[in-house]
Every structure is written in structure tokens, then in C-alpha cells.
Design a binder for these strands. Structure first.
Lengths: 186, 186
DNA sequence: TTTAGAGTGGACCGTACAGTCCAGTTCTTG
DNA sequence: CAAGAACTGGACTGTACGGTCCACTCTAAA
């Protein structure tokens, strides 16, 4: 399962054959077809696993954020992670979404839910900043949360395409500036 | 060519077979292999065509922007276009980048160049806004240009995945707010 | 009208893929 | 320990794909 997720993350769904997955997992066809009805079912399981582990990690990271400095630090961990990977993988959910949104309706819905869950965690983080007085009181944080998520996804895509983590940093610095512009007038 | 580009845009590269392309173009295998060495060459030609037509359209749209209102209007045309497509295609360059960046190095470089060209046009637009006094004098527009591009890409990906053009609008509204926060203090 | 050469149609090929199948093995239960 | 159920290995199948090939047609120059 974890092996399959890694292969698919690196190569994409269409480019990953079941034989590769089997070799990586040191399993046989009958085992795979015992647990999954077909390749699509395996892909959906991979999506569920990636979504769960990613959202868990995101929640963990976001829960610590209670100031601009800690937000910047979280952004910096994203850039550092991307740099450590040599920009060879973007966001697993984002990559799967780009590939599957138009060809697999069930997968698209799973991925949309994963994005929504991520956005919801971003929103509670923004709500916390607001309660601490860092954002305008009464601000609706729904749209800003989508914007932060979009910026992360776009930054990751640019970084992956140009192999330059600075593109991601530029995006995250900008979204930090945007959020600060929502601060109450001092 | 145009037909092949449309098919690939809608289905992705791996999911589009040469037979489909041939049927759409009402051509035969030998014609295709007369003009292209192999499928990868066809894909690269599609990339070049998509990049050229998209950058041309972007340049056209950006050249008219000289105020916040015209910037917002351009953003609105992006949302309207996405809505008209029922969010079934994102950015052709972005989709290809997500699929090919890790599997086709030559394609990745072509796509990176396309992004850079797009970012360069965004930058000249931002420079124009700065000259008009809407942005802080002396501001380096390189990073903001990357940020705008990242936001567009991320917004398109979210809109395509959730089939909700409002996600794109949320992203563009945010990037508009970010740029305004770079205005000179009045 | 002949003829060389470029261009074309589409049958054909090898391969790699998703998915099937069954003989054999390991677990479970009485 | 016996018998059946559940699981496993991996050979096998049908097919759809990218790519090749060659007989044929059309063009144009002499």
C-alpha cells in the first residue's frame, strides 16, 4: 500500500503498472485482486491513504501556528521539504487531482473532499489568528483559506516544473503578505 | 494538431492514444509518423502549440491592464472562461506540467519555459502598474509575478477538482488583495 | 507518356498491460 | 487429526497500444 502510493506519487497513475506495484510490494496478482476489485479500487485506496496521511500532517503542523512568525516557519518547512525532495514530487493530492479529475469521477470527488478537509484545517488556523487579534475581527476566513491552499498548490506545481523551490517560496511569501494585509488597522 | 491538442487537454497524454488522434484528424498512421518521429515528438509539438497560443492570449489580455479595475476585469474573464468550460479543463500548460514533469525531461523544460514566459508578461504588467504609481516605486516585481502565476494555477486546479469556479475566484480575489497591499502608502 | 520520388493508406507486428484462473498451500474449526 | 474454507503463486489470456512496413497513388519534370 505504502509502496504503491510512493510509485504512483512519483510516476503518476497511468504510468504505474500493477506489475510494478506487485514487485515493490513483493506480492502476487491474486493477493492484489483479493484485496482490490480492480486498478481503480487500488487507486482510490491510494488516494484515501495519501489524503489521510497528508491531512494528518497538515493538521499537526497547523495546530502549532498562533503568530506570523510560526506561520512563516510552517511555510519554511514546506519549502525545505520540497528542496529535500529535489522538487521531484509536488503535493500527492494535487498531482493525483490534475491527472484524475477529468477521467475518474469517483476519484475526483475523493480528491475534492481531501482538498476541502485541508482547507477546513487552514480555516481553523486562520480563525485562531483572528481570535488572537492578528486578523480583522469578524473576518470570514473561508475564501482566504481557499486562497492559501491554491497558493500552496500553484507554488508546488511551479516548483516541480522548474525544479526551483524558490518559486514555492515566492508564492508562500506572497500569501503571507496577503494575510498580513487582512490584519486590523493598527 | 489542433484536434490532438484538444484531446490531450481533455484526457491527458497517457490516456490519449494515437488512434484517437488519427481518428479526430482523419489521418493515417503513416502521415503522423511522417511529421513526428514518435509520440513524444507529437506531445512536444502539442506543448509548443498550447504554450504559443496561451501566451499569446495572455499577452493580449495583460497588455490592456493599467488599473486595479482592469486587473479585476481580467481576473473575471478567467473565471468566466472556466465557468463556460464547466471547470472540465484547467490550464493546458498546468495540466501537462503536472503529468509530464516527472516522466519527460524535455517536456518539463518546455513547460518550464512556457511558465517563465507567462511570468515575464505578468511582470511587465506589474511594472506598468508600478510606473503608474499603483505599486511601491522601486518594487522588484519578479517574485510577485511568480506569485500571481502560482495563484492562477492553484486556483484552476482547485476549481477543476471541485468543479466550483468560486475556488478560482477566491484565489484571484486574494492575489488582487495581495498586490494592492504592495501599493505605496497613501 | 514515361518515370522517379515523395507522400499515403492501412494491414500488420511485438509488447506490455489489466485481469482471470486454478492447482497447491495454509489456516480454521469440529 | 480431518475436512473444508480461505488464501496464495504465478502462468495464462485477450486486447489495445506504439510503431513498422510496403504496395499504391499522386505529382512533376523530361
Amino acid at each position: 500500500m505504502v509502496g504503491a502510493a510512493g510509485l504512483i506519487e512519483r510516476q503518476g497513475v497511468e504510468a504505474t503498472s500493477l506489475d510494478q506495484v506487485l514487485a515493490a510490494a513483493e506480492a502476487s496478482k491474486s493477493q492484489l485482486y483479493h484485496y482490490f476489485a480492480d486498478k481503480q479500487a487500488l487507486v482510490r485506496a491510494v488516494i484515501a491513504w495519501q489524503a489521510a496521511s497528508l491531512v494528518e500532517g497538515v493538521e499537526e503542523g497547523l495546530s502549532r501556528i498562533d503568530s506570523w512568525a510560526s506561520l512563516d516557519a510552517w511555510f519554511e518547512t514546506l519549502v525545505a521539504h520540497q528542496q529535500a525532495m529535489d522538487c521531484h514530487v509536488g503535493c500527492p493530492i494535487g498531482s493525483l487531482a490534475a491527472e484524475l479529475a477529468d477521467t475518474d469521477e469517483a476519484a475526483r470527488q475523493d480528491l475534492a473532499r481531501a482538498f476541502d478537509s485541508w482547507a477546513a484545517h487552514l480555516r481553523t488556523m486562520l480563525d485562531r489568528l483572528r481570535e488572537r487579534g492578528l486578523l480583522t475581527p469578524g473576518l470570514d476566513t473561508e475564501q482566504p483559506a481557499y486562497a492559501v491552499l491554491a497558493m500552496i498548490q500553484g507554488g508546488l506545481l511551479l516548483a516541480k516544473t522548474t525544479r526551483d523551490p524558490e518559486r514555492l517560496r515566492a508564492a508562500l511569501v506572497a500569501v503571507g503578505g496577503y494575510l498580513r494585509s487582512l490584519a486590523p488597522p493598527s
